[in-house]
Amino acid sequence: MDDAARAELTAALHRIAGGDRAALKFLYERTGAKLFGLCQRILGESAAAEDALQEVFLIIWHKAGQFDASHGSSPITWLAAIARNRALDYLRAGKRRFEDIDAAAEILDTRPGAEAMLETVERDQRLAACLNGLEPRAQNAIRAAFFGGQTYDSLARQAGTKLATMKSLIRRGLLQLRACLSHG
């Protein structure tokens, strides 16, 4: 996301905090498809994904005032975190059946090409490059946790490894990610 788009979304969030419904509509038009894609990634193409998206925007309507751009927060990161949390809540509440093995295998797939959809900010590109630099098993496990709301237990079971192995795989991956980012 470029700086102009970021400023536009930040301004919209401020107006929403003041009760501006047109600003919510604007935000929905700009980010609804992105956030719906995220809800669907977590919940599948289901009524639950629609319900989650609806609730996401009602949460935004009530909590826009809590967004704080002064610490360099990105509005889209803030919005995506709300959408991911809400969709995972739905997933955990069993509003969608838990991943069967085939669907889980799909989640464990790497998704080449998807990264091409990244926004063009340098920071985001670096993050993506660092993620892609992780060993595939670690990258897959991190993705499965991020999108699947899974536990260490279920990740280990699916990958056919021991719990301790899964923990160290993910911890190593996160450390590697951090190191990669700080060396930019």
Binding site: G32, A33, K34, F36, G37, L38, Q40, R41, E50, L53, I76, T77, A80, A81, A83, R84, R111, A114, E115, M117, L118, E119, D124, L127, A128, L131, I142, R143, F146, F147
Partner: peptide, 13 residues
């Protein structure tokens, strides 16, 4: 980590 969310293709609701 939220950059992972950015890798998801958008879908029109």
């Amino acid at each position: 980590l939220m950059v992972l969310a950015e890798t998801v293709p958008p879908a029109t609701p």
